[in-house]
């Protein structure tokens, strides 16, 4: 078990390196820093001096991989690859275009992101499982059919519509909560309620339908027939046998998302003005702040890999077949 986890951890390292290489290639090999500078400063009428200044401000004026001008280890470290990519492993992301330290900014913004993402995760999972259970309990009835149709219809609506519609109805028509914004402490609740509800609703259709399929597949198993042959009621068959088996893939499948909750949701945060990492990313994309985008890619990948690891662990814990072998 321990050996297995160590192996998984070791396996994560090359993946992280791979991610780093991909982002490096994307940001510095596809385009030269000169291209980026020219694009940010406006393509036309840009002097070479301006480009040099732009590059120097951001530390893009070094060679890509090998610095002949530097001395000693500097030949390797005084390069774009080292300062912009390798240093990320030490969580040193440099500073954004506005001069602020990215690492500090990230640590500040994690809180608001989590304040929205965690409730969305927990409520969403709960709502989808409950809805799917309801449909499965009344399977092959009109209720089930109508539920599936509702799910498909909900899946077919753009997420933007849920957000815009929710803001319009709850905030503009009913005046229940502020339309956007954020505050620290308990007052955060009134800002968080609407984005959470909207996200849960937007995700409900597809997850509930998917979970329903998992439940129904579990129903076809032989052990369900055995349970019925014992004289168990349908309710007990569903809750004691089917649910327990189906929850293993559902819960372990959800675990992978937990670490990425820190990243928040791009859309929700942007719409509701929540100062989390999602809106930070959006702002960086709109401002074409390459340093921030690069840092977010790295952190996102690292968190995803942690999620994979957690998935493995949770599988081992949840399924006796793996736990005891």
């Amino acid at each position: 078990m321990l050996a297995y986890l160590i192996r998984r951890l070791l396996y994560a390292l090359p993946i992280l390196i791979g991610v780093n290489v991909i982002t490096f290639a994307l940001f510095f090999v596809v385009n030269t820093p000169d291209d980026m500078a020219r694009m940010q400063l406006g393509v036309k009428r840009v002097t070479p001096e301006a480009i040099e200044r732009w590059k120097a401000e951001r530390g893009y004026d070094k060679p890509l991989f090998w610095n002949d001008a530097a001395a000693g280890t500097g030949k390797a470290t005084e390069t774009i690859f080292f300062t912009k990519s390798v240093k990320m492993f030490a969580l040193d992301f440099g500073s954004a275009d506005d001069g602020r330290d990215i690492a500090r900014e990230i640590s500040l913004r994690m809180g608001p992101s989590l304040a929205v993402a965690l409730p969305v995760f927990a409520l969403g999972l709960f709502a989808a499982i409950a809805f799917a259970l309801l449909l499965v309990y009344f399977r092959a009835s009109y209720l089930d059919f109508a539920g599936v149709v509702l799910c498909v219809a909900m899946m077919s609506i753009s997420g933007l519509f849920y957000i815009i519609g929710g803001q319009w109805l709850v905030s503009k028509v009913w005046h229940l909560v502020p339309i956007s914004g954020y505050a620290e402490g308990l007052t955060a609740a009134k800002f968080v309620v609407l984005p959470v509800l909207v996200s849960v609703l937007a995700g409900l259709g597809s997850s509930a339908r998917w979970y329903r399929t998992i439940f129904l597949e579990e129903y076809t198993r032989d052990y369900v027939r055995t349970a019925r042959a014992k004289g168990l009621s349908e309710r007990l068959v569903l809750f004691r046998h089917v649910l327990r088996n189906a929850l293993i893939p559902i819960l372990t499948g959800a675990v992978v998302a937990i670490p990425t909750l820190f990243m928040g949701s791009l859309l929700i945060e942007a719409f509701f003005g929540i100062p989390g990492l999602g809106s930070y990313t959006i702002d960086a994309i709109n401002a074409q702040d390459f340093a921030v985008v690069r840092a977010m890619v790295f952190i996102g990948s690292a968190l995803y890999i942690v999620g994979l690891l957690l998935t493995d662990i949770s599988y081992t814990l949840a399924d006796p077949r793996i736990r005891l072998q």
């Binding site: 198993r221 032989d222 052990y223 027939r225 055995t226 349970a227 019925r228 042959a229 014992k230 004289g231 168990l232 009621s233 046998h241 327990r244 088996n245 293993i248 399924d319 006796p320 077949r321």
Partner: peptide, 26 residues
């Protein structure tokens, strides 16, 4: 509901595939 009392109580049943007929996580 009455049939459930009969199942297991009056009529017991065993199946062909013992590996799939038992709940794997209980």
């Amino acid at each position: 509901a009455r049939m459930r009392d009969v199942r297991g109580g009056k009529l017991g049943m065993i199946f062909q595939e013992p590996s799939s007929s038992l709940n794997p996580v209980m």
